[in-house]
Write a protein that binds this DNA or RNA. Structure first.
Lengths: 229, 229
DNA sequence: GTTCCTAATATTGTCGCCAATCTGATGGAC
DNA sequence: GTCCATCAGATTGGCGACAATATTAGGAAC
């Protein structure tokens, strides 16, 4: 029952370190991850590196081929769009179930989170808004009581980290986003599954569209950074 | 480019062996998987066992807790229903994209597979029908050209192995299933995304309902087999 | 000059061992 | 008789070394 500090987890540390390096872009796309090198740079054994690589493979952040080692698997813009589409399908499902299963406490929380959003937009704190956005989505999924959807969406979001602030930076997007979120919360509070599902689907379709439109300079940048094995 | 027989992969063998043991039910629910025991029974080293357990964890077939080892994670009926619901959302997405992206060859394949189904039902070969069913679904996903949906659905199906023949055994279900599949193929062939999505959603909703109805004697059996740590 | 074969190197796959941690039991104190 | 501390057994976490495989460089034959 105790929190259990349980520090000094070698694999967890190595995993987090590598994950940060990939997400932050310190490791470029398709870059090879040689286990011996990681052993030296991270100061842990190869078995530990190997376990960490297995977790990164699980997250879809790297690809491993037999006897060929691991390479950084940078998500392309096209894949990001596909991920948002898949999230759309799953979060619509979650919204549906949230409308069916939400408790009064769930709904109070959702309303509280949504109420924060206009303030953050007014302050121009887009980073804070994006974080608030994530919290709202996460809370809806919890309210849905749908464990499978929760797990899948969490996994998908892990692969989207590189794009998490992309859409909200588009001018005018934040206000539209707020309206969409409001509609979702309202439908769940009204315990209308169909409306909640439709509102969430609409919201994420807009996100996908916005994401597609940013596919220009960014894609060029990705090509520049790419390097052969 | 060569197929590369590449046999005698220790981890792959151990993984397949354990996977079969779990799927077939030779390993009961919540049973502990002690690495030392597996080392002896499978005749491979602990590092190999460990890698195999990581893959099984990735598949969701076992759960691993820190310093507590691994236990068999038998999917319950309730979770199976959730998995079908998530598949429904994702396969509806795939059907939508299949209608958008299918080539003439894709459609010809889909029609060919669908044409096999009535024969198998007439012969009473429900196992063959179930296999044909899987092939049709898989072919639709390939035709969708949606890599993310394909990966997620494949992962979900891996967790459903224990229930793969459950629904088709329900009397009268096979004929209904055939009609549903026919509607999906027809909508994709007509390149009507909305209709394809709706048909697939309807089909999997029926599967989920059928699965829920079988939740009785089976669930009792699961409770009996359960054992403490 | 090109191509194919061979060998050297680099990298991953697998193994056995020791340390850290958790579980359960035993024994003493109240 | 009950409860808590201590200790022994069991099990996993982490490490270094060896074997298997792929990549690459070099040289010989045509």
């Amino acid at each position: 029952m105790a929190p259990r500090p349980r520090a000094a987890q070698a694999v967890e540390n190595a995993y987090q370190q590598l994950r940060d390096d990939i997400v932050s872009g310190r490791l470029t796309a398709n870059q090879r991850l040689v286990e011996a090198d990681l052993t030296e740079s991270l100061g842990v054994s190869r078995a530990t590196i190997r376990a960490a690589l297995a977790k990164l493979d699980h997250d879809g952040l790297i690809v491993r081929e037999y006897n060929h080692g691991a390479r950084v698997r940078m998500v392309t813009e096209d894949e990001a769009v596909e991920i948002v589409q898949a999230r759309s399908a799953l979060e619509a499902l979650a919204a549906h179930h949230a409308a069916l299963n939400a408790t009064d406490e769930d709904i109070a929380d959702l309303r509280a989170i949504r109420a924060e959003m206009p303030k953050l937009i007014a302050q121009g704190d887009l980073l804070g808004y994006s974080e608030c956005n994530s919290r709202l989505h996460a809370r809806i999924i919890v309210a849905s009581r749908h464990a499978i959807a929760q797990r899948l969406i969490t996994d998908l979001k892990a692969q989207m980290v590189r794009f998490q602030y992309r859409t909200i930076l588009v001018p005018g997007r934040s206000k539209q986003s707020l309206a969409e979120h409001t509609a979702v919360v309202k439908a769940i509070a009204a315990r209308d599954p169909e409306a909640a599902e439709a509102a969430m689907r609409h919201h994420l379709r807009c996100v996908a569209t916005t994401l597609s439109q940013t596919t220009g300079a960014q894609e060029q940048h990705a090509r520049d950074a790419r390097q052969a094995r």
